[in-house]
Design a binder for these strands. Sequence first.
DNA 1: TAGATTGTTAATCGATTAACAATC
DNA 2: TAGATTGTTAATCGATTAACAATC
Lengths: 216, 216
Amino acid sequence: MHLTEQDIPAGVIERLPIYLGALIQLRQEGRTTVSSSRLGELTGVNPAQIRRDLTRFGSFGKRGVGYDIALLVDSIQRILGADHVHRIALVGAGNLGSAIAGYDGLRQHGFHVTAVFDNDPRKIGKRIGDVVVRHVDELPQVVRDQNIRIAVLAVPPEAAQQAADLVCKAGVRIILNYTPALVHVPEDVVIHNTDPVLELLHTLYYLSRAEGASKV
Amino acid sequence: MHLTEQDIPAGVIERLPIYLGALIQLRQEGRTTVSSSRLGELTGVNPAQIRRDLTRFGSFGKRGVGYDIALLVDSIQRILGADHVHRIALVGAGNLGSAIAGYDGLRQHGFHVTAVFDNDPRKIGKRIGDVVVRHVDELPQVVRDQNIRIAVLAVPPEAAQQAADLVCKAGVRIILNYTPALVHVPEDVVIHNTDPVLELLHTLYYLSRAEGASKV
DNA sequence: TAGATTGTTAATCGATTAACAATC
DNA sequence: TAGATTGTTAATCGATTAACAATC
């Protein structure tokens, strides 16, 4: 009846990276400790919730003092599995793919884009970040050789399902889908969709409320 | 004590765009009706929840038949405020900015990128999508002239706060922040952060659980 | 009519938050 | 010590879901 690892609510896991981001920013500013109330200000999360979230994994703070930033960064990284390097296969070497490959934040968190694929002959052989673009036909071999578990889809929406099938078959377990297409994957693969439109539509609702009250 | 517009839970508003995406995909396939159970399969949302979410805004279905896709698309768009055109200011004309400006899905949902800004002289005057990149100094004027309410930040993280301040001061009400920086904005501005790293970290947790069970 | 599926209620479940004793 | 802040409990709040009557 007590808490086992499986009992952690999804909401907690979603917040941990947010805490981590703020903690890293604080660390860069040279701070060594932070209180739950300050962390709450930075992240927009209720301080009581932060404390409760953290105690699920252990006791990281000192009463009267706050949390040791370095300790908490390490701990959260370990909890998430971000305490070692993860290789990423990037599918699609267009503008979006280039932006992702060139994004420093990934490397800072141990995510290394070690393979980039495209099916456009003009892009094959080009250098993106510090890897050379290969033909997508080579994907299965490369993903297996490098034991890659994470793929990022930055292809046109029509090609999304095909690309997903390909990477799943090659053994990828996590997919970040940057296309607007709804893609189906086997049960044991986690897919995360990111579509700027969905985010815009969602925030739009609140804008309409705040502004013209013409509609009911 | 009864439902007013303000009572709609945030979770419902987050799901509406997801339904919309699936509905549009179904419409493209030529379908005219869909049941809550089929929509649930496509979106991963519980059918009962879909029905309950929708009834908050009205009665859109026919018992025994399902939902009329065209009607539901229109209705959700109207609820979200996506039934008319919204102009977007894009700050940052690098790879990411180019990807966003060139993204067709935005236009399909009525989001028109009508202004792009950068501070790199080499980029000023270049064409991205169908607009010409201007110097960021022109931003306040252009945003006011075009009555722009939405800005997308695709700048280096160091420049994020500065860019946010600038667009807020010019009257923007919604910001999509594509930098990893935590940015502060006035209370009446909605900011939405999108960082691939946060999403990766979050899904990573489940990968660690599923694979090596070496850690407790 | 019989079958299907919505709209809606009522029960469950889980997350959030206030409050405070423990303790640095 | 006095002040601050965690860890934790207990209460609240809200979201999710099962179930089914209404009805197409």
